[in-house]
Nucleic acid binder design. Structure first.
Lengths: 184, 184
DNA sequence: GGTTGCATGTAAATGGTTACATGATTGT
DNA sequence: ACAATCATGTAACCATTTACATGCAACC
C-alpha cells in the first residue's frame, strides 16, 4: 500500500487535511498498522487531486497557512475499492529493539534493562491511547482490527513485565561464566 | 538498522554465505523481526569486506557459483557493538491485512473471510516454524526474543480464530441495513 | 515438465524519510 | 525561554525491493 491508497483510505473515513491524516496514522485508528510522514502525505494528496480522486476546499486561517480540507470523490472511492482487491502483501515488521536484544552478550545489562523499560512503556502508551478511542460509531471490522492491535500490545507488555527480571539474571549469569576465566 | 549491520549481526552468530543470511531472516531466529532481500544483502557483504569488517573464503562448487563464506572480523565485531549502542528507532509495523480489513464495508464478506484465513495460516506457519527452532545452545536473550515473537503469533492466531465468525456475522448484518433500503 | 532449492550478483525503479523553509500561538 | 501544536510544502538523500541474468540438480 503506497501513500496514495493510505490517504484515500483516510479520506474514506471522512474529510481531512494532510495534517489530520498524519495524526490518524500517528494516534488514530490506523496507528498500530501503518504510518506515514508529511513528506509522503502531501505529495500523495496533490496527486490524488490531480487524478480526480480527491478534491479540496481551502479554509483560510489567521497567521497560519490555509488549511486544505480534502474530500474523496466517487472516482476516489472506486480507486480505493480497486486497490483493496489487490492481493495483500505480507505484513512487514522491523524492530531494532528485538535486534539489539538478541545480542545481549554485546550490550551491557543495564542497557538491556533500559531498553526493555522503554519498549514496555511504548506498548503501554499505545494501550492507553487505544483504550481511549471512541469506537461507538465504528464498524465491526474497525473494532475487529482495533481489538487485535490492543490485544497484541497487551500481550507484549505483559511478556516484558513477566520475563524481564529472569532475563537479566540469566544474562548476568552468562556474562560471569564463559570466554576467559572472568569472575575477577 | 541497515543491511550492513544486519549482516554483521548474522555473521556474529557464525560464518555464513549471503544465501544463508537470507535464510536466517526468512526462516531463522531473526525471521520475526527483520527481513532482507538478496538485493540488499550481497551489496552489504561486499561493503563489509571493503571496510575490513568481514572477510570471506571461496568454496568452489561443481556446476554452481562458488560459495562465499563470510566471517566477521574483530573490527566488524567492534562496529556491531557500536551500532548496538545507537538509540533504537521505534518498531515499524505495516500490515496490508489490517488496512484492507478496516474497510470491511468496501470488500465482499467472502474476501474478508479468505483474508482472515490466509492471515491465520501465516501466523500458524510461523508458530510451527519457530517451535521447531533448536534453542538448546541459544543465549538467554535470544530465547527471550524468540519466545516473545512466538507468544505474539499465538495471540494473533487465537484472536482470529476466536473472532472470525462473529465479525462476519456483524459485517453481513451491517451490509443488510444502511445506505438505501436494502433487505430486498 | 514445472517448481523449488542452491548460489551470486547488478541495475533500475520505487518510494519513503529527513531536513529544511516559514511562522504564530499556547502552554510550561 | 523553550517546546509543542498547528499547518503546508519541497528537495535531497537514502535504502530497499524488484526484476533480470545464469544455471544445475532434485523432487513431484
Amino acid at each position: 500500500m503506497d501513500a496514495k491508497v493510505l490517504c484515500l483510505g483516510a479520506l474514506h473515513r471522512g474529510d481531512a487535511s494532510g495534517y489530520e491524516i498524519k495524526k490518524l496514522f500517528e494516534e488514530g485508528d490506523f496507528s498500530h498498522f501503518y504510518e506515514s510522514s508529511f513528506g509522503s502525505i502531501y505529495p500523495a494528496l496533490n496527486k490524488l487531486v490531480e487524478d480526480g480522486l480527491a478534491v479540496f476546499t481551502e479554509h483560510p486561517q489567521d497567521k497560519r497557512p490555509d488549511k486544505k480540507v480534502y474530500s474523496i470523490t466517487a472516482k476516489g472511492r472506486e480507486a480505493l475499492a480497486e486497490a483493496l482487491k489487490a492481493p495483500a502483501t505480507p505484513d512487514r515488521y522491523r524492530s531494532d529493539f528485538c535486534f539489539i536484544m538478541v545480542f545481549g552478550d554485546l550490550v551491557p545489562p543495564d542497557r538491556l534493562s533500559k531498553l526493555i523499560d522503554v519498549q514496555a512503556a511504548f506498548y503501554k502508551a499505545n494501550i492507553v491511547r487505544m483504550e481511549s478511542h471512541d469506537l461507538a460509531d465504528a464498524s465491526a471490522s474497525v473494532r475487529f482490527i482495533h481489538d487485535l492491535g490492543l490485544e497484541l500490545y497487551r500481550t507484549a507488555a505483559a511478556y516484558l513485565d513477566r520475563n524481564k527480571a529472569k532475563l537479566l539474571e540469566e544474562v548476568r549469569a552468562e556474562a560471569a561464566r564463559p570466554t576467559t576465566r572472568a569472575a575477577e
